[in-house]
């Protein structure tokens, strides 16, 4: 465990807490893409299958439980909770995310570490996570103005990926056979998706203006 990875995990945890805070405090999920949240549930469930079979550390197991339960809790709120579900932008959140699921699964069948159930699921979760933010970014561009918490949510999600890339660079130089080419490629693609959001986020922060994404 290196500092970059810990920073990445903590930043990732912050993104989940921001969403839970926003939903709990405002009883609203406007501006949040349910499709992205559903994709994250699939990512965590597919990736943490080894929760009970492959003990790495207490930290690792606790964080897995936190990510799975919180992502399911967010989807539950947005689908079931009587107050929150009414504020969901159903008409705006129209990204056909099942194509992302099918594409990631197809890619995982072709490119994986070992052609085993667990490795295919792991590769699937890595590819799916790389594109899971797309419905959210499309929703933000559609709804034009971005409320602070949602903007911070996407910003921290991007930051967590940047920390993970730094973590891989660090591990590449400090460990012998550290070959995570699947994570490398998917991670770079994922972080690139945030690039333009970061640009507009920085502009809005510099001009101290409301974050406006070009439609």
């Amino acid at each position: 465990m290196n500092a970059f990875r810990l920073a990445g995990d903590m930043t990732h945890l912050i993104t989940v807490l921001i969403l839970l805070l926003k939903i709990y405090a405002t009883k609203s999920c406007s501006g949040i893409s349910l499709k992205t949240q559903e994709l994250y549930v699939m990512v965590f469930v597919a990736r943490y299958l080894d929760l009970f079979t492959n003990f790495i550390s207490v930290y690792n197991s606790v964080m897995k439980v936190v990510f799975v339960t919180s992502s399911i809790a967010i989807v539950w709120c947005m689908r079931i909770h009587p107050l929150v579900r009414r504020t969901y932008d159903k008409e705006q959140d129209t990204f056909r995310h099942y194509f992302l699921v099918a594409g990631s699964f197809g890619l995982a069948l072709l490119f994986n570490e070992n052609f085993t159930f667990r490795e295919v699921c792991w590769a699937f979760s890595i590819y799916l996570e790389a594109v899971a933010i797309l419905p959210q970014l499309v929703l933000l561009q559609r709804s034009g103005n971005v409320d602070n918490l949602t903007g911070q949510y996407v910003f921290f999600l991007g930051a967590y990926r940047v920390f993970y890339i730094l973590n891989w660079i660090y591990r590449y130089f400090t460990e012998k056979h550290f070959s995570r080419w699947i994570s490398w490629i998917a991670g770079l693609v994922q972080t690139a998706l945030y690039a333009d959001f970061f640009y507009y986020y920085f502009i809005s922060w510099k001009n101290n203006s409301k974050l406006q994404l070009p439609a």
């Binding site: 990732h12 964080m63 990510f67 973590n167």
Partner: peptide
């Protein structure tokens, strides 16, 4: 053979 491929990251 190569040690079991461990996914030790989240």
């Amino acid at each position: 053979d190569e040690e079991e491929y461990k996914h030790d990251e989240l």
